[in-house]
Every structure is written in C-alpha cells, then in structure tokens.
Design a protein around this nucleic acid. Structure first.
Lengths: 204, 204
DNA sequence: CACTCTATTGACGATTGTTCAATAACGCCA
DNA sequence: TGGCGTTATTGAACAATCGTCAATAGAGTG
C-alpha cells in the first residue's frame, strides 16, 4: 500500500502513460468502496499526490474519469480471464466460470468498481458493462458449440442473460460470505445451472 | 403529467403528510431516469413548486431524501404485490412471479428508482433493497412449504439469491425489449427455473 | 378580527466541480 | 556544464450545488 499521503514536496513529473495508469489504478481502488459522488476530486488528488488540475488535464471531467476507470476495470477483467483452451463445451464452460470466479476473488476491488459503475445510472457506463458481460457470455459458447448447446431464440438469449446476472450475484455474494460453500460447489452450481435453465426454455 | 413548472405565485401550504408524499412521488418519478447526483435540489424544488429549504426541512439532506425515495419504492412494491392466496407451492410461486412482473410493467419508474438506488453504492440503500428482495423471496416459500421445496442449506440460500437476481434481470430486460417472448412464456421460464436450479444444488 | 402555530421561504456560507494562465521539471544541444 | 524549449504540473479564481437559519405568511381558532 504505497500512500504518499500528501507531502508538499517537489512536484514529481511522470510520463503521460505512467501518470494516466497511476490515476486509473487509484481510481479503481478508491471507487471499489466509495461511490463516485462520494469521491471528491480533492481526495483523489491528495491520495495521488497531485493537484486537482492535473486530473482535468488527463480526463476532461469527473464523468469521463469515472468512465475511464470502469473501462479499465472491464478491460482488465476480459484480459485476465483468458479464453479457456478448446475441449468439451461443458469443460470449457466450467473453465471459463472458474477463471471468472478466481478473478473476482483475486481482484475484488476492480470488479466492484466495474459493477458499481454499471449501475450508477450513466448510459455509457452501462454499455461498457454490458459489453464486458457479452464478451464473457460469448466465450462460454464457441461459434460451433453454440448451436448445439443453446438455441438462438429470443427466449434463449433472455435466459442466458439471466444466467449471467445470476452468476454475477452468486460470485459476489459467495466472495463476501462463502458460508460453508466450497469453491468447487460454487463452480458446480453455476456450471450446471446453464443446461438446467436451457432445458426450461419453452418451445418457441 | 401535472407540471406546475415554477410559477412565482403565492405559496401553497399543505399538511406535512401531503407534502411529504408529493415530494416522495416526485422523487420516485425523477430518479427513475436521472441518477441521484444528476438530480439537483434546485430542479427538484422547481419541479415541485417549492423552495430548496423545504426539502431540507422534511428530509435532512440529499442522502436521506434519496433513502426515503428508495424506501417508498420498496414499500410500494411489497404492498402492491400482495401475497398470493394459499394453494399448491408451484401455483403460489407462479402467482407471486406474475404479480411481480405485472408490477414492474405497470410501475416501471418506481421499480427503476429502487433498483438504481440499490446499486448506487450507499450501504443503507442496499439494505433496503435486499430486505425488499428477501420479502419477495420469502413469499415464494410458505413456512411449511419451505422445508419441502427448498432445503435450508447455505448452498440453497445462495441459489435462491441467484434466482432472485436472475428474475430481476429477466423481468427488466423483458419489460424494455420483450422481443417475441410472451408474458406467459416469461412466467413459465421464471417459475420453472427455481425447481430446476434447486435440483442442481450439490449435496452438502 | 386578532392571535397563534407552523409550513414555507430566501438569502447566506460551505463544499465541490471546472477552467486557465503561470510555473518548473526534464531532455537536448552547444 | 549551462542555457533553452517542451510540456507536465500547479494553484488561484470562477461556477454550481449542497446545506443552514432566522424571518415570513398561510390557515385555523377563539
């Protein structure tokens, strides 16, 4: 935990890439616990050891900064949960879910920033979030496997979306309070849920 | 839509109950589309035809007002989706889901205010939301029926929570874009999902 | 019609988002 | 080594919004 905690020392000059990365990392960290309107630019600047003005130099305003933070969290999630190696559809599904669960556990703050950002009303943020979830969902079904595992109907698309929401809720709840549910059991529940839900889809 | 739209006319004096109800209704309406930090007290006051100060007289600050709005939306949801009459567990389940779906359709704004409020970071708001969802979930299983339909284990509680999240996502998505999915099909999917998910719970 | 109670107001101070001209750190070249 | 230009960075000033409080006025009561 490197906390410069504001010393009125000499200004430190970084490259734009470094500075931007630092601010985004800090934003992810801070926005995991506070909501965006509870995070003042003052606090952010002090925590980063910079002036308020610099933040506006890199990101035009607070909204844009928040958007960049959420986008970074989404990209990080997509990148770190790399697509599983080819194999049986159910195997691939389980591997994807496993990497997703492990990511949320290891990177709780970043994931919270993403989820909370998505729900904070802004349309742009919701799009970023939806896109990330789409990427994750699409990975579960390879182009060839999709036709067989999940039919491409309106009902099916709805169910897959619902399954994604359920998965997110399960993982977040389990991460915070696992109770006596093991990681394996969680994976089993999520993985087995998808076929079970697909079987419920009415004929259309 | 009655929009007084600010006339500098004589002040209208209402009873505290009426005024409070008016402000909460207006809050539910306004917070359905904007997020809480995008809603200025100025706009709210002008829209209500009152001064800013009056809002602070009734609710101490903006957070408390938001909390009251969300709580009202939650109470409204719980009240209007009255518990279904006794009968078969699956029948009761379907009736509960139906009333829930119909409420969301008929009262989209209020429901959005509730959901968006819950996700906006504040811990109190999330508690209100969780409590409302618990009430709805509990209704699905009468005390006597619970033991038989859903076992009371950590895994089962997790699954029911996930099912709730899925239901919420399904109903919201369907309300906005029904596609060619009928109301009956949606009810069928949600209702049949719970037993299907329960069957997936690993032995613990 | 005066009088009391209290719902309501409007002006003021405090906090926070945003802008912009001035400043200083770093690389470069003589 | 020392001056110089580029530009990352600052801090003060401005704007908008949150929150406070003593003063005001509507409505019932005798």
């Amino acid at each position: 935990m490197t906390t410069p905690t504001s010393s009125t020392g000499p200004r430190t000059r970084l490259s734009p890439e470094e500075r931007r990365a630092q601010l985004l990392d800090l934003g992810v960290q801070l926005l995991a616990t506070r909501s965006v309107d509870e995070l003042s630019i003052d606090l952010l600047a002090e925590e980063a050891g910079i002036s308020r003005g610099l933040l506006y130099h890199y990101f035009g305003n607070k909204h844009a900064f928040h958007e960049a933070v959420v986008r970074r969290a989404a990209d990080d999630l997509i990148e770190q949960t790399a697509p599983p190696p080819g194999g049986e559809p159910l195997q691939r599904l389980r591997a994807s879910v496993a990497s997703y669960v492990d990511y949320v556990v290891a990177n709780h703050q970043g994931y919270l920033s993403l989820v909370k950002g998505a729900a904070s009303g802004n349309e742009t943020l919701r799009e970023i979030y939806d896109e990330a979830r789409s990427v994750l969902s699409e990975r579960m079904f390879l182009p060839d496997a999709r036709g067989s595992m999940v039919p491409d109907t309106a009902s099916a698309r709805l169910v897959v979306r619902g399954w994604s929401a359920m998965t997110e809720e399960l993982v977040l709840t389990w991460t915070v309070a696992p109770g006596d549910v093991t990681r394996e059991q969680l994976l089993e529940i999520i993985t087995a849920s998808l076929p079970a839900l697909v079987a419920v889809i009415p004929a259309g």
